[in-house]
Design a protein around this nucleic acid. Structure first.
Length: 585
RNA sequence: GCUAGUGUGGCUCAAUGGUAGAGCAGCGGUAUCGUAAACCGCAGGUUGGGGGUUCGAUUCCCUUCACUAGCUCCA
């Protein structure tokens, strides 16, 4: 038996796919009559969807693992076979596997129907697989959750068992360990521990920013303003609540009503804005526009409210009210390509600065769309070209665009490897038309502009959540709520410490002084747990030499003793350059 | 919203069908101390809310709220 090459993604995929077949068999052995749905390999593991009366609990996991071990030890060969379509349907009907029958019926007529068998287990499967079940070494059932058959919320909900498999117990243990470590940087946990943001039962899905979180938010916004000025945007702010009639014109009332909070003012229907676009449009509409003004870039830090389903809420990643770092750009069709390149460059500049790895997805024309195929094609090409021009790659999501235009999504990972959409660039051919927007071209004729909706952070909330996990609470100095924490060794040093604090604060640094009557080890531990950027020890020696003994939460070792003025200069440089690591590294 | 699970003082956790216990944090003292938790004492909870079963519920049941994982949907 050839040694497996675990580094090869295809091998990992086959390995876990085979493990998923083994799990399916184990479950059917333990709970006969269980119907099988699908069981693919996924990032870091695999799952299988089951339909059974039995409700899986965590106690079942060990039982299933034991049963899987038996199948592994039997070292069955995996054997591929093919079946004509009708025969395959009959075969699975006889075995009482309605989900498999449905899958086969949905396969194209000319598709080869293949099955994989090991021992007395057989499953509809395109493969490929490992050679034998004995090659699977370490398996672990991780969790159980509901999942709709074929991802359709109108269809029955099945039970999905998530599991993983590794070539050795050590690698499995290491993976479990990594998960534990990742959980420690969960932004919900850190948000509370570091005093950044939190939630209360009284307001599900509506975040509270605590004083330190407010520093983060404000600094992020300062940066946003700076960079948008540089890229030619103007900033506006539009009302929180506007008349229902406006939302009817924009189409939101029809398409988005269930997510909108509404209110009554003087017996008239109003809605709290779930999106900022209509506000921008009303600003554009204020006066006749000329081609000379285009592209007109309206930036808006818009606070929006959306009624998200309760089960969808997820810390700062998914909330019911959030600030979008929005912009609506009105421009002529001919300008689309250049403008999209510009936006993609802006996005890349920001993500690169934060060292956030991201992936890009291009969502194309859905079946239900408005506008001509030619317009769509041109728009999709413009988006694709923009990405290529900044040297990035993208994945296509066919038919996944909004009904009014195609879009590019910028996706970032959280600490557990879940993807969250942050930035997005959406082309919109519809809204300007609905509002009869126009501009006068160089030809003296009236034209309808195109609108681009785009966000860079996505939302301040989601971005801060992602950032918190990305840097495990050790924020870049320019964002850090506490840039310097001063710790006195004894009460005798308090006076000097206070002078240092004032000097650093005068330079604009965010400084906290801990002169409590506690041991230095105690105060240091606390400061480190709070991820305060630079922690300075102040004792006799320092007071005498007019120095500080410096450590950084980003570096393991002590940085050493230095003069207050040098420390100050270095920190100001680190802030100015917006670097992510310590300047002393 | 759906499926499953969880809910005990600010935090982390314990306990039991007989009306809750610890550590940390807090407060009051003592120690003035050099790099990840000094010591002593005090105070703090109608066990998420409501209802039911029971002589008795935090424990069992129902319901509701919130959270967690996933599905669906999305910034």
């Amino acid at each position: 038996m050839a040694k497996i090459n675990w580094e090869d993604p295809q091998v990992r995929w086959n390995y876990r796919h085979t493990a998923s077949h083994i799990m399916a068999q184990a479950v059917q052995n333990l709970w006969p009559g269980t119907k099988l749905a699908i069981g693919p390999a996924i990032e870091n593991g695999f799952y299988y969807d089951f339909d059974t009366e039995h409700k899986f609990t965590e106690e079942d996991f060990l039982k299933i693992q034991k049963e899987m071990k038996k199948i592994i030890q039997a070292n069955h060969k995996l054997e591929r076979s093919e079946m004509p379509r009708e025969e395959a349907i009959k075969f699975f009907e006889e075995r009482n596997e309605p989900y498999k029958v449905e899958l086969i019926k949905d396969l194209p007529e000319d598709e080869t129907i293949s099955l994989y068998a090991h021992g007395d287990f057989i499953d509809l499967c395109a493969g490929p697989h490992m050679e034998s079940t004995g090659q699977i070494k370490a398996v672990k059932v991780m969790s159980v959750a509901g999942a709709y058959w074929r991802g359709d919320s109108n269809r029955p909900m099945l039970q999905r068992l998530y599991a993983t498999a590794f070539p050795s117990q050590e690698e499995l243990d290491e993976y479990i360990n990594r998960l534990e470590e990742a959980k420690k940087r969960d932004h919900r946990k850190l948000g509370k521990e570091l005093g950044l943001f939190t939630f209360r039962d009284e307001a599900p899905g509506f975040p509270f920013y605590l004083p330190k979180g407010m520093v983060l938010k404000n600094k992020l916004i300062d940066y946003w303003r700076e960079i948008h000025k540089k890229w030619g945007y103007v900033e506006i702010s539009t009302p929180q609540i506007m008349k229902r009639t406006l939302w009817e014109t924009s189409g939101h009332w029809e398409h988005y009503k269930d997510n909108m909070y509404t209110t009554l003012i003087d017996d008239e229907d109003f809605a709290i804005k779930p999106m900022n676009c209509p506000g921008s449009i009303l600003v554009y509409e204020l006066e006749p526009r000329s081609y000379r003004e285009l592209p007109l870039r309206y930036g808006e830090l818009g606070l929006v409210h959306r009624h998200e389903l309760s089960g969808a809420l997820h810390g700062m990643f998914r909330v019911r009210c959030f600030t979008q770092d929005d912009a609506h750009i009105l421009l002529a069709k001919e300008q689309i390509k250049d403008e999209v390149v510009r936006i993609a460059s802006l996005l890349d500049e920001v993500y690169t600065m934060f060292e956030l790895p991201y992936s890009i997805e291009l969502s194309t024309m859905p079946e239900d769309h408005i506008g001509t195929r030619e317009d769509w094609q041109r728009a999709e090409d413009a988006l694709a070209e923009a990405i290529t021009s900044i040297g990035k790659e993208y994945k296509v999501n066919p038919g996944d665009g909004a009904f009014y235009g195609p879009k590019l999504d910028f996706r970032v990972l959280d600490s557990l490897g879940r993807e969250w959409q942050c930035g997005t660039i959406q082309l919109d051919y519809q809204l300007p038309g609905r509002f009869n927007l126009e501009y006068t071209g160089s030809d003296g004729q009236k034209h309808t502009p195109v609108m681009i909706h785009r966000v860079v952070f996505g939302s301040i909330e989601r971005f801060l959540g992602v950032l918190t996990e990305h840097c495990a609470g050790k924020f870049p100095l320019w964002l850090a709520p506490v840039q310097v924490k001063l710790l006195t060794v004894t009460e005798k040093n308090a006076e000097y410490a206070l002078r240092v604090k004032e000097e650093l604060e005068e330079a604009g640094l965010r400084v906290e002084l801990d002169d409590r009557n506690e041991k230095i080890g105690f105060k240091l531990r606390e400061a480190r747990n709070l991820r305060d950027s630079y922690i300075c020890i102040i004792g006799e020696k320092e007071a005498e030499n007019n120095t500080l003994t410096v450590r950084s939460s980003k570096l393991k070792d002590e940085i050493g003793e230095m003069s207050v003025s040098e420390f100050k200069t270095r920190l100001l440089e680190e802030i100015d350059k917006k670097i992510n690591d310590s300047i002393f590294a």
